[in-house]
Amino acid sequence: MAHRPAPTRPVPFSEFILKVHSRCNLACDYCYMYELADRRARTDPPLMSPEVFDHTCRRLAEHVHTHGLAAARIVLHGGEPLLAGAPALARMAERLRAAVSPASARISVQTNGTLLDERALAVLAEAGVLVGVSLDGDRRSNDRHRRYASGRGSFDAVERALRLLAGRPEAYAGILCVVDLDADPRGTYQALLAHRPPMVDFLLPHANWETPPRRVGPAEGGYGRWLADAFDAWYDAPVRLTRVRLFEELLNLLLGGQSRTESVGLSPVAAVVVNTDGGYEQVDTLRSSYPGAVDTALTVFDDTFDDVLRHPAVAIRQAGVAALAAECRRCPVHQVCGGGNYPHRYRAGSFTNPSVYCADLRLLIAHVSSRLRADLAGLRGG
C-alpha cells in the first residue's frame, strides 16, 4: 500500500505496547484481535519468550536513552496478559524499569479483569503496575458483547475485580468502555462511576468504510449523540468524580492545546507494538482494517525502534495535517478531530479518507464547543 512521505522529523516513541500473551479467555464479539479483519493472532506464539523479552528490553533502553526521554509508558497487553500470571508480569515490570533507568517507567496492564483476584492484584500493586480494566457499563450492556466462548457473561467476574481495585487506588488505572448504541449513555456513565475509576475512556467500536459501524435508525450521528449525552452527564456534575479521556482531550484541543492521544487531534503517533514473536507492529487496532495492516517486517532481533520510526506507514502517521484527506483539510474542525482514529479512515487500499465516524465526531465536537463557549461567555459576563 502506497504512503506519502511525512514532511516532518520523526518524533520518538513514548508508549510501548508489549503483547506478552496473545490468547484470551473471553470471546468478545467486537475484538479486533480475533473477530475482525486480521485474525492472525490466533497463530501467534501464545507467550512472549524470554529471548524476545530480553531483546525488547535492550531495544527499549536504546530508544529511551538515545532520545533522552524522561519517561516511557509501557503497557503489558494481549490477548489477556494475566494468562501469563501476575508474578511473571511483576518480574517483567522490574526488568523494564531497570532497562530504561534513569528515565521513569509508567507500567500498566490492560486486562479484561476476569482473572484479577486479590492475590494477583497484591503482586501487581507491590510491583508498581497499574491495572486498567475493560467494562461496557452495567451487566446487560457488558454481557451483550463481552462473553466467554460458552456465551456466559463476564460481568460478575469483572465486577469482583473492580471492587478489589477500588480498595487499591494506587494500582487503579481506569476503565475502558466501548460505546454501545443499545445502552443508555447516562446510565452507562453512572454504572461505570459506581466502580470509582480514576479514569474512563469511551471508545468507538472499530469500524471503517469497508466494514461500517452498526447504526440505529436512518440518521447518521448516533454515536455522536450518545457521546454528547455522556459528556453532559460528566460535565454537569457538581463534583468531578472521574476523568474522561476523550472529553478532556476535546476540551484541551478546543482551547488550543495539543492532543495526547491519536484518536483525536493532530499529534504524531507515539505508540508502537512488540508482538509475542518479536515483530514490531503498528498500533494493534489497525487489525480491524485488513490482514497485514499492522505489519512492518521489522523485529527486535534485527531492528531498532528508530528503524520503525522510518517505516513509511509509521512516518505518515506522524505527518499531521499532511496525512489528512483533502476533504478533512477543508473542514473547520480538522485541528480538533484530526481526521479521527486512523483505523476508522480505511477504505479499500487507502487511509487517506475521512473517518467513518465523521458525522459523529462533528456532532460531538460542535456540542462540546457550544457548552464550552457558553461557559466562557458566562465567565466574561460575570
Rank of each mutant, 00 (worst) to 15 (best):
H3A: 15
R4L: 15
A6I: 03
P7V: 11
R9M: 09
P10A: 02
F16G: 08
I17S: 03
L18I: 00
H21Y: 12
C24D: 00
N25S: 11
C28H: 05
Y30G: 05
E35M: 11
R39C: 07
R40S: 15
R40C: 02
A41F: 15
A41Q: 14
A41H: 14
R42H: 13
T43Y: 08
L47H: 10
M48K: 01
E51T: 12
F53Y: 14
T56N: 04
C57E: 08
R58H: 13
L60V: 02
L60K: 02
E62N: 10
H63K: 04
H63T: 05
V64L: 02
H65P: 00
G68V: 05
L69H: 00
R73T: 13
R73G: 13
G79I: 08
E80H: 11
L83F: 03
L83S: 06
G85C: 02
E94P: 03
R95A: 14
L96H: 03
L96P: 00
A99D: 08
V100S: 01
S104Y: 01
R106A: 15
I107P: 02
V109Y: 12
Q110L: 14
T111W: 04
D117L: 09
D117Y: 10
D117E: 10
L130T: 03
V131N: 09
S134Y: 00
G137H: 09
R139T: 10
S141P: 10
G151A: 09
G153M: 07
F155Q: 01
E159H: 09
R160H: 08
A161G: 15
L162D: 04
R163H: 12
A166D: 06
A166Y: 04
I175H: 04
L176S: 13
C177S: 15
V179Y: 01
D184T: 04
G187T: 08
G187P: 05
T188D: 01
Q190H: 14
F202V: 07
L204Y: 12
H206W: 04
N208Q: 01
N208R: 01
W209L: 04
E210H: 11
P213Q: 05
R215V: 11
P218T: 12
G221S: 08
G224R: 03
W226P: 14
L227D: 09
V239K: 12
R240L: 14
L246K: 06
L246S: 08
E249Q: 14
L250K: 02
L251V: 13
L255N: 10
G257E: 15
L266I: 12
A270L: 06
V274A: 11
N275W: 10
Y280E: 02
Y280W: 01
E281K: 12
E281F: 01
E281Q: 14
Q282F: 05
D284R: 01
T285W: 02
Y290G: 03
G292C: 00
A293Y: 00
D295H: 13
T299S: 15
D303A: 14
P312R: 06
A315T: 07
Q318I: 07
A325Y: 06
A326L: 07
C331T: 00
Q335L: 13
C337I: 06
R345L: 03
R345K: 12
R347L: 14
A348E: 15
G349T: 07
G349Q: 06
T352S: 11
P354E: 07
P354W: 05
A359T: 13
D360L: 10
A366E: 13
H367M: 03
V368F: 01
S370A: 15
L372T: 06
A374W: 13
D375S: 14
R380G: 05
G381L: 15
